[in-house]
């Protein structure tokens, strides 16, 4: 049985919260809720932004009040038919060059968990990850969950610039930075794959609900596939 609460975020946004912890069981529910609200809420809604356990509805505050929006969202979600929730999704492989040169936090993550660098890599590669959400930056796919033995807190102060393609860990989540951006996750490697391509109709190689597996590659293969780095481009 699906349950939720609608929280007020501000005069132009409410958030539907479906749970407190990350679980694959919420992925199809939140996707169905997003589709339903997209089809039925209509004018004045600016964005529907799904994440692991939440769905933000942002709207024009001159067109809707928070109370009215909260009431409509609650009423619409009552009609959600759980029998019709799908579980489709493709399997996608993302090649990664794991190395301290492009993964400046790799050794620290290993020390933090009292593992060798090779053990960190092996544990990161062995899992089929769910795409829980895309957000934070264009094409930034939140993947989970990493093994408990890799759960690592975010940096105390985010880096001002994380290079494109960086593969990163935070708590029990993992992701690839699709563009250069500030970021607070632990960097352990880099992929040559383009994670956000505006010339392609689907924009991103992964979609919410897909499965992802990371495949280790060598420095030579990284370069051969078009991967880029400069010595010291991230510290």
């Amino acid at each position: 049985m699906t349950s939720w609460v609608v929280e007020t975020l501000g005069p132009d946004a409410v958030m539907v919260r479906f749970g407190e912890v990350i679980t694959p069981a919420l992925v199809p529910i939140i996707r169905a809720a997003t589709d339903l609200l997209r089809e039925t809420l209509g004018e004045g809604v600016r964005d529907l932004v799904p994440s692991y356990t939440t769905l933000m509805v942002s709207f024009d505050p001159l067109a809707h009040s928070v109370n009215e929006m909260t009431g409509r969202v609650n009423a619409l979600l009552q009609t959600l038919d759980e029998q019709q929730l799908g579980d489709a999704g493709e399997q996608i492989e993302i090649p990664v060059w794991y190395d301290p040169v492009v993964g400046p936090d790799l050794k620290r993550v290993a020390r933090y968990h009292q593992l060798s660098v090779d053990e960190v890599i092996a544990r990161h590669c062995v899992v089929d990850y769910h795409v829980f959400a895309i957000g934070f930056a264009p094409g930034f796919a939140y993947l989970g969950e990493t093994p408990e033995a890799l759960a690592t807190p975010r940096l105390d102060t985010p880096r001002a610039k994380v290079p494109v393609g960086s593969v990163a860990l935070a708590d029990r989540q993992t992701a690839v930075y699709p563009i250069a951006t500030p970021g607070g996750w632990n960097l352990i490697g880099r992929t040559p794959m383009t994670m956000f391509d505006r010339s392609r109709p689907q924009l991103c190689p992964v979609a919410t609900g897909d499965r992802v597996r990371f495949v280790p590659i060598s420095r030579a293969e990284f370069l051969a596939r078009g991967g880029r780095f400069e010595q010291g481009d991230v510290v």
């Binding site: 958030m15 994440s51 356990t53 933000m56």
Partner: peptide
Amino acid sequence: VKGIVSEPIPFGAVQVPPD
């Protein structure tokens, strides 16, 4: 808490990193 389950961010949100 140090981190939360990542969630959408509205305009004007005040976030506080561990520092």
